[in-house]
């Protein structure tokens, strides 16, 4: 083991000592438009005693996961990254971006469950060590389950005082079942987190509906309409803020609300932030770690009015 806590028995000791190390796969967008996600997720998990150790070398995860059964070249990026995780001496990796998490996990399952595909991928990557699916791909929510909500509650310095929060899972955390956070499409983890932070989760049928995804490049109008519908429903159900774990959902919900406002005058905006920013707020972390400054729909007035930042 090089510096990492990979084995189960070591993990418990590390948690008990208050510092669990885990390999961290950022993904491209956390290094560019989703800097606020990266800053807040690293800072808030440090409070919980989990240290994210960024992989020295990593590439794009290969998103979006190819559903074509004969398309192996698009799994190569994922597998290569998982090999990097092993090389760094870890057997688990955390990917905060929902899409990276889904893509890495799906490719991992593909290699685990299909020997023929594993063989072909490995023989294509003849410059790498063979990979058999022995790394575990985790989302920060998996780690929340591992540390337990009691620990989260214990870290809260500024309870959210009944703030109404819509947990927006999007697609990649709940579908398909093999990569999903929990059974069925309602994992409940975001709701538990919101409650632990002192907020009130708001349920709407849009919590697990698609935001329009990558169509923001080719058909932004569709995505604008999706963002409007999701935001409208959130406001209707009394939510004050939307939280998400996907940089693409975030961009679509946040940026496209501006366009929606331009098109539909009576449209009422609602700020969208990353779940980790909400954690950082409740944990009483500094402005730099919360990083609320990069949004199109400014969330600061909401939190300032409540005296939370």
């Amino acid at each position: 083991m090089v510096g990492g806590v990979g084995r189960k028995e070591d993990r418990k000791t590390a948690y008990d000592a208050g510092m669990m190390k885990i390999a961290y796969y950022p993904g491209c967008t956390l290094k560019t438009t989703a800097r606020s996600f990266e800053k807040s997720v690293i800072a808030s998990y440090r409070v919980l005693g989990i240290e994210y150790i960024e992989l020295e070398k990593w590439t794009c995860c290969g998103t979006y996961f190819s559903l074509a059964k004969d398309d192996l070249v698009h799994h190569i990026a994922s597998i290569r990254n998982l090999i990097r995780v092993k090389e760094a001496g870890y057997d688990r990796v955390v990917a905060p971006c929902s899409m990276c998490y889904n893509t890495l996990k799906m490719a991992n399952e593909e290699v685990r469950n299909d020997e023929e595909k594993a063989y072909r991928i490995n023989s294509f990557m003849d410059e790498e060590e063979d990979y058999r699916g022995d790394v575990e791909v985790l989302h920060p929510f998996d780690l929340l389950r591992e540390v337990g909500m009691d620990r989260v509650r214990g870290a809260v310095k500024k309870p959210l005082e009944g703030l109404k929060v819509m947990p927006y899972y999007g697609c990649m955390l709940v579908r398909p079942e093999i990569a999903a956070l929990g059974k069925g499409e309602l994992p409940g983890i975001m709701e538990d987190l919101i409650k632990a932070l002192g907020g009130v989760p708001v349920y709407t049928p849009y919590n697990i509906e698609c935001c329009g995804s990558y169509h923001v490049v080719s058909n932004p109008d569709f995505v604008m309409a999706r963002a409007r519908d999701i935001a409208k429903k959130a406001v209707m159900e009394g939510a004050e803020v939307i939280i998400t774990s996907c940089p693409l959902c975030h961009y679509n919900l946040d940026r496209m609300q501006l366009e929606a406002k331009r098109k539909w005058k009576d449209f009422k905006e609602i700020p969208a932030i990353y779940f980790s920013q909400l954690m950082a707020i409740a944990f009483g972390l500094g402005k730099k770690d919360i990083a609320l400054d990069g949004n199109y729909v400014d969330p600061r007035p909401l939190f300032e009015a409540k005296g939370l930042v």
Partner: peptide, 19 residues
């Protein structure tokens, strides 16, 4: 900006990390 290179060479995003 973070996207300057993609702006001039958008085909960059087609990389599949085949090495």
């Amino acid at each position: 900006s973070p996207n300057t290179l993609i702006k001039f060479y958008p085909e960059l995003v087609r990389c599949v990390s085949c090495n």
